[in-house]
Amino acid sequence: MRIVVCIKQILDPETIKFSRSQQAIDDRLATRIMNPPDRWALDAALRFKEADPSIEVIAMSLGEPGVEDVLREALALGCDRAILLSDAAVVKARAAGLAQIVATAIRRLRNVQLVMTGHMALDTGSGTLGARLAIELGDWPVLMNVDQLRLEGGHITGLQYADEKYYHSSYPLPAVATVLETPQHPRYPHGADIINAYRVRNVEVWSSLALGIDPTTLPAPTTGRQLRVPPARQLGLIVEGTPQEAAQTLVAMLRSRRVI
């Protein structure tokens, strides 16, 4: 059985700047990282593989060739294969088209029983890929926003978060699961594995042409978009003085604001 984990590369939110004058994201100094929720999804998939070595975990990502780095990281973490879907059509496509491309690639892999991804991408924050993929794959069931995933007897079960309550849900395979972040740390790769992932391992690059997708049939990008950067939060007040004075001033200020 094969598990596909869809990984997105995003700009590290800690390193990007938002330019208020340009109303744009300044990514000149930004580093690119694996979308954190996807890391948890990958972690869950690798746990399944540890429990049952016959499971093959395949990391999949799409975009420009630079995205390869997150796939190398996935290989270093223990994925069996890494596939990058990359060409002009992929770069241009939006949600509906992307889901079609990814689903075609997943179908091409055969015997994929489970597709996992993070519950959302931190950058766009949309979190719709899982549900869209499920439709494209032929109306597979989708477990959204789950935690504590288990594979048992041909079913995937998890603790689902919805409307501030938790539910156990279970669906038969094949299925799609979108994974929540939890306080438990996901694994990070060892240095030697990272070096191997670059020296020895191979990221397969698939193009939509090779998948037999005609880019003209993909849904056109349908939305015009622009960015709006909210005004900066007003800088707070630094309370000066010796510790005792500062403490007194602070408590007086908090009291005058009726916070305490």
Partner: peptide
């Protein structure tokens, strides 16, 4: 986007 650090304004067509 980015947890509200900025907003994307999208026009649906």
């Amino acid at each position: 986007i980015y947890h509200g650090a900025a907003y994307r304004v999208v026009e649906c067509r």
